[in-house]
Design a protein around this nucleic acid. Structure first.
Lengths: 234, 234
DNA sequence: ACAATCAATTTGTATATACATAACCATGAA
DNA sequence: TTCATGGTTATGTATATACAAATTGATTGT
């Protein structure tokens, strides 16, 4: 039997207040009762009411100011977060078996085209790795990566035979700044080949650049077949 | 006396612990001292330590389990934020002229297909709106939206002739939870037609579902031509 | 009239205490 | 061996209390 405690939980209060906002009992822009009043109404301690309100404020539903009070936000939530998963975890999290295959690995001097992607000086030593991530044996993601050797010298000693460059970098090279973009595209013929799709099939592409302070670390293009869906919750 | 009382703030504790994790004083996967021990070390109350730890846990830096303790996450969930823009603002921000065109608006009872998208009971009253957003006269986004009339009854009185449902909803129906997903797809023939592209061209699709607590508010599918790129910075 | 100051109000945070809840673990029964 | 049971322990949450910080609005001095 589940005899729930009869003390009012901050969750109950949070949800009830959210309900009132949703039902427009408290309209956007209007002040809601102060903590003291809510304390009385819900028969809870102020700390409890406060916790409920703080969560709602963090979620962007209300805005609070000392001495002024708490008001319902006029235009709530305007940003969401998405997690940056490791492919292997993403795959295993959905109950499939992960496999990794190195396609090519080359050290070379940065070409003109490379400098557009990685922002290094032409001629800098870079590492170019291509690999494939598979879920239950099926191609899941084609990864094309440039690594700035100056920023991650240990990468030159890593064969990337058994471990993907992403996993390696996560453990060895933290970054302080990142730029992500997502787009729909058609695959190159190499990408289509590796992913076992036709060249006119749409692909979902994520591109990411990361820096540690001003120093570029890596550029990666991740190509998924059409079936891929990137989801995030708020 | 200018010395203000130096009680330790949960922020100080939070930041110090984050620093230790970043500097690998506490290594990934290892247990960190319990709340009681930290309480002693920092000379703060357990509630204060608890608040610091809860914030770190929410940020994904640590994982906590009752009786077991708190350990440093093995793979710190890096996360990025993306803003949820109003199409109109997104377009105007890039210096183009925004235009809106309503394509269709219908009230009806939810079909089986609708319930998959909106999570309402079959037969519930829903509003189905299709519209087009243009940038400098060119099709920019095709929007296909379902609105749960029970959650936003005022929508039934809104013609959506001059204002898009997104802008209207932002002002009238807050949400507390959202699920976003992005994918590459091929356009339906209607979508291709509206966007003036071929049916075999890839499109970038964003889908979003929002709830206020348990109550579904709206589902929207936003279809962009291939040239679209969604970018975010960390 | 105007500026400086102060009191009042509301949220923000710290503390001590108490009990609730989850989960590990040792013990003992089947 | 295996499963159920209960003790132990770390985190989770509620409460009363106290003071801090921010901001408004009224009061006071010039």
């Amino acid at each position: 039997m589940t005899t729930r405690s009869q003390r009012t939980s901050y969750r109950d209060i949070r949800d009830e207040i959210a309900r009132r906002i949703g039902d427009q009992v408290w309209k956007p822009g209007s002040l809601i009762p102060g903590e003291e009043a809510l304390t009385v109404e819900f028969g809870a301690a102020r700390a409890t009411v406060n916790r409920a309100l703080q969560e709602l404020a963090r979620a962007g539903l209300i805005e609070r100011k000392r001495k002024v009070g708490t008001r319902v936000s006029l235009n709530p939530v305007r940003e969401a977060r998405f997690i940056i998963p490791l492919v292997s975890q993403e795959i295993e999290a959905s109950g499939m078996t992960y496999a990794y295959r190195l396609l090519s690995r080359a050290e070379r001097r940065a070409s003109r085209a490379d400098t557009l992607r990685l922002e290094v000086e032409p001629g800098s030593v870079i590492l170019h790795v291509k690999c494939l991530h598979l879920a239950d044996g099926e191609p899941y993601q084609f990864e094309d990566r440039l690594i700035n050797a100056a920023a991650a010298p240990l990468a030159l000693d890593e064969p990337f035979q058994a471990i993907g460059p992403n996993e390696w970098l996560v453990a060895s090279a933290p970054f302080s700044r990142g730029e992500f973009s997502f787009l729909a595209d058609r695959p190159s013929s190499e990408e289509a080949d590796c992913l076992k799709i036709k060249t006119d099939a749409p692909v979902f592409v994520g591109e990411r650049r990361t820096w540690l302070l001003a120093r570029p670390i890596t550029f990666v293009r991740m190509v998924h077949p059409q079936s891929h869906r990137m989801t995030s919750t708020l």
